[in-house]
Nucleic acid binder design. Sequence first.
DNA 1: GAATATTAGTTGAAAATGTAACTAACAACC
DNA 2: GGTTGTTAGTTACATTTTCAACTAATATTC
Lengths: 148, 148
Amino acid sequence: MSKKARFELVEFLPYALNQAADALSLEFQHVYKGRYGMLRTEWRVLFHLGCYGEMTAKQVCEMGRLHKTKVSRAVAALESKRYLEREEVANDRRHSVLRLTKAGQSVFEDLEREARAFDARVRGDMNAQDAQVFQRALLRIAGLSSRD
Amino acid sequence: MSKKARFELVEFLPYALNQAADALSLEFQHVYKGRYGMLRTEWRVLFHLGCYGEMTAKQVCEMGRLHKTKVSRAVAALESKRYLEREEVANDRRHSVLRLTKAGQSVFEDLEREARAFDARVRGDMNAQDAQVFQRALLRIAGLSSRD
DNA sequence: GAATATTAGTTGAAAATGTAACTAACAACC
DNA sequence: GGTTGTTAGTTACATTTTCAACTAATATTC
């Protein structure tokens, strides 16, 4: 007979993943948008610099899988908020190194605290092992896992 | 000393989840956009009707957690493609019931096949138990889990 | 049953994103 | 050392999304 079971939209990965991502993003957005009027790409750039230290826009694009125009605009916005500054590189004036200012650093630290708390809260409802399984699956799907 | 470990951006849930969701969405987009020129919200609306049968725009909004303007525009687009039609409701002319046309139904069936294959492929690399853990975690985070 | 409120859906303007073309600086080749 | 190609980043324009105001229909309240 082989009557196919109904397709369960909510179990379809691209759908479920997006719903989950949207739900969390929206929540975390309250923090960075509410407190600092930042956009999604802005906190991402800020976090890249805060977590991994100074780097060029290109490197932010690669690590964050962001399009260069998005990064370009986010950098301009963060710069006008005085959260980051560019330093010209002596031997290649095409790019410059981005670095958080003192103000940017403290915004980062504040948001980092929030992010840790947020993450802990969401993961809190999971047992440790499931959390690990979940994490690994996510990274693999995102193509971010180290070995693959 | 309690020196805090560096914050790992790629393990931060809102970030990792978005990266994963983006990766899959982009891939699946090739199918519905490439074959039928549909937008994200359009396939979602199409799938809601295809999976769960006829319903009003309002109901699509609630089930899919989509804003009414998005749905309104997606419905208009699908209608102009002749993939769905509206039926006026006798006793309340504010809303109408949406239903896939024959053409819409067959587009749905085609995409559903693709979706099943796509999903199977992504899950294929996971063992069954992990897949289940992953699924449950996702639904819970998305706030879509039945019991909560 | 007229006045007000609510609901479903649409429309228009503003913000954000994506795409493509562009500029400026460097590299490579002859 | 000048032509061609490549790279980092910006700018301009089209598409999409978001937000707020609007319309039309029904519900509520007095």
